[in-house]
C-alpha cells in the first residue's frame, strides 16, 4: 500500500512511522523547512517539502497512485482542500481527514468528504461513556453549588433494596424527590418500599455523592 500523508506534525509523523513500520510505503508532505528536516531524520527519505494543498506538490508526491491520502494538518481548511483534491482531482481510493474542530464536520460532509477523524469528538464520546458508567448522575446543578438533583438506579446489591423509605439512612442534606418504577412515578412516602431497579431522584449536596453511590449502588453491576 502507498499512503500519502499531508502534514508532518506530531500526528503526521506518528502515522508515517506506523505505516512504514508495517512495511508499507509512505510519503509525508510538510511545508515548514525545519520540521521537514526533523521528519527526514526520523523517518528517512520519505519527505516532500511543500504546500500540500497545491496540486503540483500532490502530483509530485504521487497522489495519483496513493491507496490512502491522510490529511492530518492542524488546519481544517487545509485538510478539507487536500481531501477534495484527492477525491475529485486525483480520484484517490480513500482519504482520511483529521477534523480539528468538530463543528466543521457538517461542512466536510456537505463537501463530499467522509472519513473524518476528530480527536475531540472521540474524547467527548469517551467522557460521555465514562459518565454513563457512573451510577450517581447529576441531572441539574444549581448555580449556588450547594445542592443538585441527582439520579441513581437502585442496585440489587444495595442493602436499601427492599427497605422502606423511612428506614433508609439517607446521607445528611439529602431529600428523596421521586421514585421512578418502569412507567410509574411514585410519591416517596415513608412507607414506600424501594426495589432494585427503581430510579431514584434526589436533592443532594455534591459532597454526599460518594455516600449515595455506596449506599444505593455499591460495586460494579
Amino acid at each position: 500500500m502507498y499512503v500519502l500523508i499531508v502534514g508532518g506534525g506530531k500526528v503526521g509523523m506518528h502515522v508515517g512511522r506506523t505505516v512504514l513500520e508495517q512495511g508499507h510505503e509512505a510519503t509525508v508532505i510538510e511545508q515548514r523547512l525545519a520540521r521537514a528536516e526533523v521528519l527526514r531524520e526520523a523517518l528517512g527519505d520519505v519527505v516532500v517539502l511543500g504546500n500540500g494543498t497545491l496540486p503540483s506538490v500532490l502530483e509530485s508526491a504521487g497522489c495519483g497512485r496513493a491507496d490512502v491520502v491522510a490529511a492530518v494538518t492542524g488546519d481544517d481548511a487545509v485538510n478539507l482542500l487536500v481531501a477534495v483534491l484527492a477525491n475529485r482531482h486525483f480520484k484517490a481510493v480513500r482519504s482520511i481527514v483529521r477534523l480539528n474542530d468538530p463543528r466543521n464536520e457538517r461542512l466536510f460532509r456537505l463537501s463530499g468528504v467522509g472519513g473524518t477523524v476528530s480527536s475531540s469528538a472521540i474524547l467527548a464520546e469517551l467522557i460521555e461513556r465514562e459518565v454513563a458508567a457512573q451510577r450517581v448522575r447529576t441531572l441539574l446543578s444549581f448555580p449556588s453549588g450547594g445542592v443538585a438533583i441527582v439520579q441513581v438506579d437502585l442496585s440489587s446489591k444495595s442493602s436499601v433494596a427492599g427497605a422502606r423509605v423511612r428506614d433508609v439512612p439517607w446521607p445528611r442534606g439529602t431529600l428523596l424527590v421521586s421514585v421512578l418504577r418502569g412507567e410509574e412515578v411514585l410519591v416517596p412516602e415513608g412507607a414506600l418500599t424501594v426495589r432494585a431497579g427503581d430510579r431514584l431522584l434526589l436533592l443532594a449536596p455534591p459532597a454526599v455523592e460518594e455516600q449515595l453511590q455506596t449506599l444505593l449502588a455499591p460495586g460494579a453491576d
Binding site: 494543498t53 481544517d76 481548511a77 487545509v78 478539507l80 482542500l81 477534495v84 461542512l107 456537505l110
Partner: peptide, 12 residues
Amino acid sequence: NVDATNFMVARA
C-alpha cells in the same frame, strides 16, 4: 491571502 481558507469559506 490563504487559498485553503478561501476555499473553505466559499464552501461554507
